[in-house]
Design a protein around this nucleic acid. Structure first.
Length: 590
DNA sequence: CTGGGGATGGGGCCC
DNA sequence: GGGGCCCCATCCCCA
């Protein structure tokens, strides 16, 4: 249900839409200047630049590496790379602030690595073969792309090694960089045509301790504004700029066809792909509808499906929803399901249960907040939420604690509070046995990386304890055995196994990923599948794994028969870990 | 990292 | 069927 939370923070639908801007401006109590954030602006700019790069539009820089050519934009490269900043004199206090380079030969950076770094520059996504990690690290160091270099070192376990560099070494490397930049600059100023053929053979590996930060900071993937979408929908029909024509001619003169390499194409696909998403994925732009779907998928991954790619899921909506409801009823949740006609949202196709609930749901799309607090002007999408909000002004706290003077605004606050009195912590981590009073705290605990310490409360299982019949296999004993699965199982129990296996270092293994990027990759894959299937075709393994991964999560989270009782959750988690054990044992036998 | 408060969106029941 | 009210799950934010 929350699979997309990381990449899809709650949409601020009231802001980007022009008709809502007026509402914002008219909000009482907001005199003077107003700030209207467009959180998707930076990502859209980057995406447009990437489109231009792929189309060869407005490119004013060609990078070459061992025969491969990559068209790019100097401004982007200067924003990403300290090396290019200095090369172009674009660094703060720099010289002419632009330079006149058109071709830069970087034979010291492997083509695939350069390709990956370029892709990173335009998408904030680093996609490289795991076998090419060192090349990328080397390239990132050479070009002064610090965040990529740091990530590669982390992955390669060379953090300490890199940090162990002496200041003297870094100084010498820094000087080498300066010399390299100066040399490149001097020659290039002399003859731009000569630059095409010039080989920078004396590039010295450098470590630039820059403070580069991602040019596209994490921003919520929110719906694009209609205006931006209309722009995006227009094909690129602009004629090449004179500079572009010159550049193209130059490329032809140099005997090289224009080469916009796609990441991961060709030989680089041999090994297991390492796909690392830096910040948010920028592989493509979702349409407004799909954005809304994505937004909805925060809560219901299957239900919010309006695009063709997800039609299968869409057709299953009514069944799924009704089944879930029926299952909830059958599970003895308490409330009897009222016979009512579900309504389907025309925007996201989501099935809304309950008569009269569709308008309420639609406001989540439009951003309309018709209910305004007369005291502070805050607006709400729902009247009942405003009513609760008004309690803050009236001081009404209708939920008193029977055990103490505390009173609460919400019934669930009281419920949480009561658990403090009772000391009840019904939500226990099946692995470290840490107990929580609130389910969401346990979920947070499981999702985070806090659950990494080896279990200490219970002894390790005996090797054959389960087989010799001395154990009855009940849940408690099973839990003890689960603890013996080891730290790896502990940390991996809630991660798709393929991801962890990817860390084996094998070049042919599955992709290695950071756990926190699971959802991001999943989203990126889906977006890629929807908007750039051609590129996705280059990632067969990645695509399949991504979908498997996502389906796995959905299967886990969309189980129509699941209940949210602590006991049932423990059972499910125990099952997960049990499967983990089974897999481990199979591996041991092998 | 955890505990706690608050916000948000969906579903059930009722009028 | 529309809407109010309530409960619930989940998330975010802050200390």
């Amino acid at each position: 249900m929350d699979a997309m939370r990381i990449t899809l923070p709650r949409l601020q639908l009231t802001v980007p839409m022009p008709m809502k801007i007026e509402k914002v401006a008219m909000s009482p109590g907001e005199d003077g200047l107003i700030g209207i954030p467009f959180p998707e602006h930076s990502s859209e700019i980057l995406a447009h630049l990437n489109d231009q790069r792929r189309a060869g539009l407005l490119c004013d820089l060609t990078l070459t590496s061992r025969g491969a050519r990559y068209q790019t934009h100097r401004s982007v490269m200067a924003a990403v790379s300290l090396y290019f900043r200095r090369l172009f004199g674009a660094e703060e206090g720099g010289g002419e602030g632009g330079g006149g380079f058109s071709v830069c030969q970087l034979d010291c950076v492997a083509p695939d690595a350069l390709d990956a770094l370029l892709e990173f520059a335009y998408t904030a996504t680093l996609t490289i073969p795991s076998s090419g990690m060192r090349d990328v690290l080397r390239g990132a160091q050479l070009l002064g792309i610090q965040c990529v270099a740091d990530a590669c070192r982390d992955i390669l376990g060379e953090k300490a090694e890199a940090e162990g560099e002496t200041a003297e070494e870094q100084r010498s490397q820094h000087i080498a960089t300066e010399n390299m930049v100066q040399e490149q600059s001097r020659v290039d100023k002399g003859s731009r045509r000569k630059t095409d053929r010039k080989k920078v053979k004396n590039m010295i590996p450098i470590y630039i301790n820059s403070s580069f930060s991602n040019p596209s900071p994490a921003s919520p993937i929110s719906h694009p504004s209609p205006a931006s979408d209309s722009i995006r929908s227009q094909p690129f029909t602009l004629p090449p700029s004179p500079k572009q024509e010159e550049l193209d001619q130059k490329i032809v003169q140099n005997g090289g066809s224009r080469m916009i390499r796609e990441p991961g194409r060709g030989a680089s696909l041999n090994g297991g792909l390492f796909h690392w998403l830096h910040e948010r994925p920028l592989v493509a732009h979702p349409s407004p509808v799909s954005s809304l779907n994505d937004k909805l998928s925060e809560d219901d991954d299957v239900e919010g499906c309006g695009d063709d790619a997800m039609l299968i899921g869409s057709t299953s909506i009514p069944t799924s929803a009704s089944d879930r409801g029926a299952a909830a009823t059958a599970a003895g949740g308490g409330r009897k399901r009222k016979s009512q006609t579900p309504q389907q949202c025309p925007v996201c196709q989501k099935i809304i249960h309950g008569a009269g609930k569709l308008p309420r749901h639609m406001r989540t799309h439009t951003g309309e907040k018709p209910f305004q607090c007369s005291a502070c002007g805050v607006r709400f999408t729902r009247n009942d939420k405003l009513k609760i909000h008004m309690r803050k002004h009236t001081g009404e706290r209708p939920y008193p604690c029977p055990s103490c003077p505390a009173r609460f605004l919400h019934s669930y606050d009281l419920k949480n509070h009561l658990s403090l009195h009772s000391g009840a912590r019904p939500f226990e981590c099946p692995l470290c046995h840490k107990a929580f009073a609130r389910e969401d705290h346990l979920q947070r605990h499981r999702k985070g990386h806090s659950c990494l310490e080896p279990p200490t409360r219970r002894p390790k299982r005996k090797p054959d304890a389960f087989e010799d019949g001395s154990m009855n296999g009940d849940g408690r004993e099973q839990s003890r055995q689960l603890e013996a699965v080891s730290l790896q199982a502990h940390s991996s129990a809630f991660l798709p196994r393929v991801l962890l296996d990817g860390g084996s270092g094998s070049g042919t293994g599955p992709p290695l990923m950071f756990p926190s990027d699971i959802e991001r990759r999943s989203f990126a894959l889906q977006t890629l599948a929807q908007f750039e299937p051609r590129r996705l075709a280059s990632y067969p393994q990645l695509f399949l794994r991504g979908l498997d991964l996502r389906e796995g999560r959905e299967a886990e989270e969309e189980d129509p028969g699941e209940t949210h009782s602590p006991a049932s959750q423990r059972d499910r988690w125990a099952d997960e870990v049990e499967e983990e054990i089974g897999e481990d044992e199979v591996e041991e036998e092998e």
